[in-house]
């Protein structure tokens, strides 16, 4: 089955994107990321020592078919985000950027106004922009208008593992979007990931649930399978949900 996800100039056969935070050791992270078969891995610019070519975090990720997606975690404004993105482009030699602007360090909720501003600016500067945002359908359309290559609405507050709490809004976003929709944040278990994929999300991004699991490698594999299952189910068209049973003796048969 040819079910390739295309974002900007890149094609992905895996719809599971992953992150690099919270792992207990780099070697464990490497094993988990390999098991996930993820081809897009996000890394916080602030965790990387860009001056050091032998940065162990980066070395632990780099493999063929794996793309590094630097993120701007830690910035509070559009100006800071644009600056950080440029630094990341220079240091990591990629024009892809996961735009995260969360001025609130407690819940790490994205600032929609600054994000839209930064996205517009970054697109003009030639970046492939992947914005982390609330599940806000209007904001998604506004971001699409300024030229982002996908949107990354949250399923629940980041790091909470609460699952797809924003389902009603995600459904609208997925229905209306002309760019890929990647559900980011809140996915705590493989069933959440499968659910997001069944809804029609183009991909999911999972970090905490893998990194903090007792067995990150096995959990990465579980997510890989769940995302595949959810995608296949979506393509196969789910049977409709019914709130009542079909009557065995139809009420209108007398009309025939």
């Amino acid at each position: 089955m040819n079910d390739i996800l295309k974002i900007a100039d890149k094609e992905f056969s895996s719809r599971l994107f992953t992150g690099t935070g919270k792992f207990s050791a780099n070697h464990l992270m490497t094993e988990a990321l390999i098991a996930s078969e993820s081809e897009l891995i996000t890394v916080a610019l602030k965790r990387v020592d860009v001056a050091n070519e032998e940065d162990t975090m980066l070395q632990s990720i780099m493999r063929p078919h794996v793309n590094i997606l630097p993120n701007t975690s830690g910035v509070r404004t559009a100006t800071e985000a644009v600056f950080a993105a440029q630094l990341a482009r220079e240091a990591l030699e990629t024009n892809w950027i996961k735009l995260e602007i969360h001025p609130d360090p407690k819940y790490l909720l994205p600032d929609p106004i600054e994000t839209l501003k930064a996205a517009e600016e970054l697109v003009k500067l030639g970046f492939v922009v992947m914005p982390y945002i609330h599940a806000d359908p209007v904001l998604c359309k506004r971001l699409e208008d300024v030229g982002v290559q996908c949107v990354m609405p949250l399923g629940a507050p980041i790091g909470t593992n609460k699952g797809i709490k924003t389902v009603d809004f995600l459904e609208i976003i997925i229905e209306q979007s002309n760019v890929p929709v990647i559900v980011d944040a809140g996915i705590g278990s493989p069933s959440h990931a499968a659910y997001a994929m069944e809804l029609g999300a183009d991909a999911v991004l999972v970090n905490t649930a893998i990194a903090v699991s007792k067995n990150p490698v096995a959990m990465a594999m579980a997510f890989k399978i769940a995302v595949q299952a959810g995608r296949i189910a979506y393509n196969a068209k789910l049977a409709p949900v019914k709130t009542y049973a079909e009557a065995s003796s139809p009420l209108t048969s007398f009309l025939n």
């Binding site: 792992f23 207990s24 050791a25 780099n26 916080a44 610019l45 602030k46 965790r47 990387v48 020592d49 860009v50 830690g74 910035v75 100006t79 800071e80 600056f83 950080a84 630094l87």
Partner: peptide, 20 residues
Amino acid sequence: IESQGYQAVWKDWDKSYFEI
């Protein structure tokens, strides 16, 4: 720290954030 299954993190910020 490592023997207890934790990673010692040395860098979690970047000086460039102040050069704006």
